[in-house]
């Protein structure tokens, strides 16, 4: 019985952990969004980069690497958000996941938009 109980407890817990983990992660997700501006112009926003990283430095590297301008917007609800000019979604995603970038896991990043 003990083994069975153990199994039972383990299974639900594992699932629960995964579930709650996902729920919690949903706040830890890094959201990469795109917004349309005038004409063909677009804006890319990167929201939810972990606080252990220095946003300014990241921005500086990204700006240089992707040849675009950008700013850090401090919004009261979402925290610090990096804004970039143009559609940099793919680039940013690669940068965040690559080794020379932040080396984050792909499943923590959500790319939105079309």
């Amino acid at each position: 019985m003990t083994t069975i109980e153990n199994l039972r407890t383990i299974d639900p817990f594992a699932e629960a952990d995964e579930d709650t983990g996902q729920v919690q992660q949903s706040q830890q997700y890094i959201h990469i969004r795109i917004q349309q501006r005038n004409g063909r112009k677009t804006l890319t926003t990167v929201q939810g980069i972990p606080k252990k990283f220095d946003q300014k430095k990241i921005l500086k590297v990204i700006k240089k690497k992707f040849a675009c301008n950008g700013t850090i917007v401090d919004s009261p609800e979402m925290g610090e958000v990096i804004q970039l000019q143009g559609d940099q979604r793919k680039d940013v995603q690669e940068f965040l996941t690559s080794e020379e970038g932040l080396g984050l896991k792909v499943n923590t990043i959500k790319v939105h938009g079309f």
Binding site: H31, R33, Q36, R37, L43, Q47, S75, M78, V81
Partner: peptide
Amino acid sequence: VTAIKSGFTAQIG
């Protein structure tokens, strides 16, 4: 399923 969140939207225009 997760609720739909619009997230951060930059001010444009």
